[in-house]
Design a protein around this nucleic acid. Sequence first.
DNA 1: CGGTTGTTTGAACTTGCTCAAACAGAGTGG
DNA 2: CCACTCTGTTTGAGCAAGTTCAAACAACCG
Lengths: 228, 228
Amino acid sequence: MQTAIATRSPVRAVPYTIPMSRDGVLARPSVALSNPSGVRRSFARNEEIFAEGDDTEYFYKVVTGTVRTYKLLNDGRRQIDAFHLPGDVFGLEPEEQHRNSAEAVGEVTVTAHKRSAMAANDAAFSNQLLAAMTRRLECAQNHMLVLGCKNAQEKIASFLLGLAERLSTADRVDLPMMRSDIADHLGLTIETVSRTLAELVREGVIGLAAGHRAVTLNDRAALRQLSA
Amino acid sequence: MQTAIATRSPVRAVPYTIPMSRDGVLARPSVALSNPSGVRRSFARNEEIFAEGDDTEYFYKVVTGTVRTYKLLNDGRRQIDAFHLPGDVFGLEPEEQHRNSAEAVGEVTVTAHKRSAMAANDAAFSNQLLAAMTRRLECAQNHMLVLGCKNAQEKIASFLLGLAERLSTADRVDLPMMRSDIADHLGLTIETVSRTLAELVREGVIGLAAGHRAVTLNDRAALRQLSA
DNA sequence: CGGTTGTTTGAACTTGCTCAAACAGAGTGG
DNA sequence: CCACTCTGTTTGAGCAAGTTCAAACAACCG
């Protein structure tokens, strides 16, 4: 049904352990990190940042590049649950182990933040945690709607619109990921992704350029129509 | 692609508003409610408990029956993101408005808990909130894997196993929901659900009884195998 | 008993998948 | 600089899984 990339460890049940709030200090709005600096780290294209089951000792904020988080089935089928763009926080979970794996899509730099270092000024942290969880859950719920209800064209259209919105780069989207990433995110095959993009080009709704890694949104209204 | 049930309000962007932790009181383990009683309410089959966009004034805990939470596309296609069984908390979100709708699958009784009443003893509440979010996110991530990667048989097999595990009723599962609910949960049609169940019966892995609303798991190992 | 609702079953069809091959760009080494 | 390889993308043809449409069936209920 999907690209088999690699066979990895099976999914385990993860016990709950939730860090408790202790103090009354209010956190800043939502996405800002309480320690905004963190340790800067770089990852090469396709390099693993963490794997499912790894300790949640660190969480990360994307500085440049794109990160994919995903789960695997035993036979290697992969579901990419999200792409994380600059500014996005990922890997911040209340449990002791990561439930996803994370990899650099291209060259990536992130800031790594030690979770235990946060345990002190706790209320601020637990609010960050809650904000991160909320954001992830919102994405997940929207994406279930895409995966469960939409056809190939609708999936691609929503994907492009979503990406364009997050990158907010006028009407040109430089896709940081390859076709197989898009396919594994949308529950399609690379061929269908390719064909559907070609179809949208034929209809004049989008254009492809730069070795097919850049999309121009010629007609957002039409795309929004198609994304329904 | 899926059963069109009704056309409802489109999805809005929801601003963040996150209740803050204030106190150092530790909450009980995870799922227990700080106010365990709440107000008991009953809902008739298919009755709406809350709709997408409603204020998150109340959240709920299932006492008896089953609740479905779902999102709709403009044309009525529906994605049921979860079924909530006795003991499960649903509708507990940090935002001001619900992002899902909730309906009673059959006769349902719940306890309703006013969110604002919780704001006082806050740390306990925010931990509950976090636990609820964590639980929901875990489900959502697992379900994305199902929706994005698995075929009909694998979907049905995982669904039955998951339900059996949560109900922990020996090897018999009484399905509280109808085929169209299962279909809209798994991204299939009612016909495919029906055919796939029939196929599993033919293979001897499960049995159907009680007007096709009860499933006996004759061979869990085989089912687990098929759930890939 | 007849009507309604939910489920099953069949047959035809369609979407997206599989398999295969061609193509294009980026490196690499002679 | 060209030939060669490697990786990623496109394209085509055939196929299969799942959908659609339609009809029959079963249980329930007034």
